[in-house]
Design a protein around this nucleic acid. Structure first.
Length: 432
RNA sequence: UGGGGUGUAGCUCAAUUGGCAGAGCGCCGCACUGUUAAUGCGGAUGUUGCUGGUUCGAGUCCAGCCGCCCCAGCCA
């Protein structure tokens, strides 16, 4: 018996093969019936003709249900009426795993909350499969990009002592050492690694116990954080641009079928696949926004509405750089040209998808970063090893954090990032 | 933590001024030899989120509570 995957069937035309998968759809018109099968590589329609199969096979077909796992055997042939262009003339049918009639997901519209309650089954539907494949491609592209550019991947700890950014922390007991906290960023460890290895990136989950309830937030999300010795803020933006062009190009080259399933406007992604991306100074951005009618004033961080307003004139991602010091984190380097600001950038995806990257040149002056820690009333003791990086061989360096789900949401054109991770963790959702 | 919604059959949703609890899908039965969410005919399906109040009568009005969604803030 020769088994085949659905994606390979075009090379088996005229041959008899066995395909294993799950029944996504059943249609019958009396003496001719159709099974639509999914095996994770594609969709196959099998035709069952009552007069051409043994009575027991016809009976077994009659008892089939949606999502039953089956093995079907028959000859593969080209047929324009079948999805995918090939179909199987069914000769034999074996049930591997039966499925009761009350399978919760119908070929019908469902509400998002209901679908999230049944996420373990929702993942089987074509749209979700397409998103998952694009996410996987994006992850692979990121790893390939950094590998090709001589970066070392460093996996930083998830359990940490209280250190990191200001937003909410998830706490858990840690033996006799009190509380441990789930990491909100690997950046501080990334900076230590950059002094050891030169060019590094982290790729892992991060956790934010913020009570955020928007389409752009998860409590657990995946972040990619490069950290590079001896590059400045401008070179940092160049790296971001090169990476994003590489990622978008890769998805366009390899995932057309998935983009079509998602009905994504490919032309809009094509625009983002070519450099350069505009780099707008924060101060200029504020002036532009004011002309457009925004109430923003110099010193404010840009809100979601401002970001959309600013990006609407461009078809590529847009960098906004050098924000006011007060609006940004303590570790960002003071801008020598305008000490009210820091050498940093956000990268805003087009079409209103918002911030996908936050980056900066890091403050490498021990006195200046100490002053900032004190100004923000952060626990100085917790940062002892981090500050020691500035004491022993301090070095100019820059890095950034790319939000994986936000990037995938933009590329896929999904309105909410919860579809861009297999099992989203949100304030009101811990299962499945 | 603010602002705005919403909660009725397994699912998606209707229900006029307060007056018999409804439809489509799914499911069950029958018919049908090329279906694409097949189609046609017939059938079963309810603690209207919870608690209390007003009323002859509440899905509908009032009070409190709960769940969820969207927007904002925080950020990736």
């Amino acid at each position: 018996m020769s088994y085949a995957r659905i994606a390979e069937l075009s090379s088996h035309a005229g041959q008899s093969v066995t395909v294993r998968g799950w029944v996504t759809h059943l249609r019958s018109s009396g003496k001719v019936a159709f099974i639509v099968l999914r095996d994770g590589t594609g969709i196959l329609q099998a035709v069952v003709v009552k007069s051409q199969v043994p009575a027991e096979v016809w009976e077994r077909f009659g008892a089939l249900t949606q999502e039953a796992c089956v093995a079907i055997t028959g000859e593969v042939r080209a047929d324009a009426r079948a999805p995918g262009g090939h179909e199987m003339g069914l000769a034999a049918l074996d049930v591997i795993g039966a499925s009761p009639l009350d399978y919760p997901i119908q070929p019908k519209e469902h509400g998002v909350d209901y679908l999230l309650d049944h996420r373990h089954f929702w993942l089987r539907t074509p749209r979700q499969v397409a998103i998952a494949r694009i996410r996987s491609e994006v992850e692979q592209a990121i790893n390939d990009f950094f590998y090709e550019h001589g970066f070392l991947r460093v996996d930083t700890p998830i359990l940490t002592a209280a250190i990191g950014e200001r937003s909410g922390l998830f706490a858990t007991e840690y033996f006799d050492l009190g509380n441990a906290y789930l990491a909100q960023t690997g950046q501080l460890y990334g900076e230590a690694a950059a002094a050891a290895f030169g060019k590094i990136y982290t790729f892992g989950p991060t956790f934010r116990a913020e009570k955020s309830k928007t389409r752009r937030h998860l409590t657990e999300f995946w972040m990619i954080e490069p950290e590079v010795a001896f590059i400045d803020s401008d070179e940092n933006m160049q790296l971001q641009e090169d990476m994003l062009v590489f990622i978008v190009r890769r998805v366009l080259d390899r995932k057309q079928a998935e983009l079509k399933e998602l009905e994504r406007e490919v032309a809009k992604l094509e625009a983002a696949a070519s450099a350069p991306y505009p780099r707008i100074d924060y101060t200029d951005a504020v002036a532009t926004l004011q002309k457009k009618g925004s109430a923003v004033t110099w010193g404010d961080d840009l809100g979601a509405e401002d970001e959309t307003l600013l990006v609407e004139d461009y078809s590529t991602p847009v960098f906004v750089k050098n924000y006011p010091k007060e609006a940004k984190a303590f570790y960002m380097k003071e801008n020598p040209a305008d000490p009210r600001t820091v050498l940093c950038n956000d990268c805003l995806a087009p079409e209103g998808f918002g911030e996908i990257i936050g980056g900066s040149q890091r403050e490498d002056d021990l006195e200046k970063i100490l002053r900032r820690i004190r100004e923000e009333k952060l626990p100085e003791d917790a940062y002892d090893w981090y500050l020691a990086l500035r004491k022993y061989g301090t070095f100019p360096h820059s890095g950034y954090g790319l939000g994986l789900e936000r990037t995938v949401a933009w590329i896929c054109g999904t309105q909410h990032i919860r579809e861009c991770i297999a099992f989203p963790r949100m304030m009101h959702r811990l299962r499945p």
